[in-house]
């Protein structure tokens, strides 16, 4: 494994940002945001990964077994909950934008033009 998950994480972060920057559709923008967030899962899980180790469920395996780091897995769970919240909130806003503006293209959402 080694360097690979981190390289993929950087790629996901950058390509997700590019998606948000170039998006002409707000649903796509929100999905690109989840791509950015996927990079955080990879970094956290990559940090705790050990080759040949088992899932950190210690109830039914010998205590001497080699385990991956459970802390980062807990962090990822929290991260997933946050993603679910933010994505749901954003998609609700997009639905509302479609009702009020009749469009979900960021180009058309310009009441704040200054």
């Amino acid at each position: 494994m080694g360097f690979l998950p981190f390289a993929v994480a950087v790629w996901l972060f950058v390509i997700g940002l590019w998606g948000v920057v170039s998006s002409r559709n707000l649903v796509r923008t929100v999905l690109c945001l989840t791509v950015v967030q996927s990079s955080t899962y990879l970094v956290l899980l990559g940090v705790g990964y050990r080759t040949g180790a088992m899932a950190p469920i210690v109830a039914d395996i010998p205590s001497t077994s080699k385990l991956v780091d459970p802390i980062v897995q807990v962090l990822v769970l929290t991260d997933v909950v946050i993603e679910a919240t933010i994505t749901a909130l954003l998609l609700a806003l997009v639905v509302q934008a479609h009702k009020r503006f009749g469009s979900i293209d960021p180009e058309d959402l310009r009441p704040l033009r200054d």
């Binding site: 955080t40 806003l93 009020r100 959402l109």
Partner: peptide, 29 residues
């Protein structure tokens, strides 16, 4: 209309900032 757009801009910018910080926490850990 305006609150929807303002909230979208606020939420997307700050969420990306939050994700960058999750990566930083992973690196420090």
């Amino acid at each position: 209309r305006a609150p929807i757009q303002g909230a979208l801009n606020f939420a997307i910018t700050n969420s990306i900032a939050g994700y960058a910080m999750f990566i930083a926490v992973g690196l420090l850990y």
